[in-house]
Design a protein around this nucleic acid. Structure first.
Lengths: 191, 191
DNA sequence: AAAAATAACTAACAATTGTTAGTTTTGTAC
DNA sequence: GTACAAAACTAACAATTGTTAGTTATTTTT
């Protein structure tokens, strides 16, 4: 019995992410977290080294996945529209896997302290790749020549906030969502 | 000299909103806020009654404006597309007026405590009006028959997060932004 | 200029914070 | 069943929290 089951540390991080989503990092105390796990606050420190570390692990793990993922997508040899669909797909997949972590990524990154700089580097790298995909699509005439900053903001914001929406869908049909959301973001909603 | 200038209480609330945006409500201490205003923590209480109250005033003021505004838009006799443009316009206007307050509205509403229930009522009312506009637009064939939940989520999320983007634009041409963002949200980005 | 009101201050409070030290319980290996 | 490690516990710490009381300084009104 290796690990079909989560280690205690992983259990703690998962619960922490859930609590962070509800109230934000700063408002969650170690006693809150301990109670949610079913132990006393001091016992947490048999498994983790600090509250900070929990946050860092939650956020950097996901941020790394996103940055790695878009790197792969960006270097593929397809049109911009296919790449954008792949980005939508990645967001939906990673968010469905870990909606609570996504919440922390979105709302609590400013409390990273020691790891803040590294996080910002990952985020910049991600946004740069995203931007490149869009600009290439515009140059090749696949995408409309609208203000690229606004375009980027609009799509990226929707994708980054999927964590608010996806958990509400109990019976999530992922492939269908990818298609429908891509359609709305790319083709618009006016008939 | 009535009030071209802000009252001390208003100054405090404005500074509070700025700090809340940077670190979130829970991470901002009364001593932080006092220092930002240039006085001691205890002196704040000559002007406000509690930290809670500051948050409530910031959030409920804006929430009320949004709910009132969409009520007006929804009862106008025009097509759905014009109404949606009006909603975009309202979001851009209110966000440009008060980006820090919008941040608190988005991120710190869960700390409202006593006023939470009232806030949730305002938010529900807002979303209901928004939904009605979209559904009517679909019924009349003005809007595509895409999944309305996804459509609502996508547009509303973009609009709600404008506070992250608008302050970066020093020379904001509001009318232009309204046009360009409406175009992207309504017509899509694919040529 | 005196009086009154406003707004700042210092000092302190009780509660809560993340974390540590030291101890006891629990589970596993021999 | 004894030994060892893992993981829980109790108790406490120093720092920080929102807030109050009481006092002094500043501004406004008379």
């Amino acid at each position: 019995m290796r690990s079909n089951t989560l280690s205690r540390k992983e259990q703690i991080c998962v619960k922490a992410a859930q609590l962070f989503k509800e109230k934000g990092y700063s408002a969650v105390t170690m006693r809150d977290l301990a109670a949610a796990v079913g132990i006393k606050a001091a016992s947490l420190y048999n498994h983790i080294t600090s509250k900070q570390q929990i946050l860092s692990e939650i956020i950097l793990d996901i941020a790394q996945q996103f940055t790695d993922g878009i790197e792969t997508i960006a270097t593929q040899e397809t049109d911009a529209i296919s790449k954008l669909k792949a980005v939508v797909s990645q967001h939906i997949t990673l968010t469905a896997d870990n909606p609570y972590g996504m919440a922390a990524l979105n709302n609590d990154w400013m409390h990273l302290e020691g790891k803040l700089e590294y996080y910002l580097k990952l985020r910049s790298a991600y946004e740069k790749q995203f931007k490149t995909i869009v600009l290439e699509g515009q140059e090749l005439g696949e995408l409309k020549d609208v203000n690229s900053e606004i375009l980027l903001f609009s799509i990226l914001t929707t994708l980054r906030n999927l964590y608010l929406w996806i958990p509400k869908k109990a019976d999530l049909e992922k492939d269908k969502l990818i298609e429908e959301l891509s359609e709305i973001l790319l083709q618009g909603i006016v008939k």
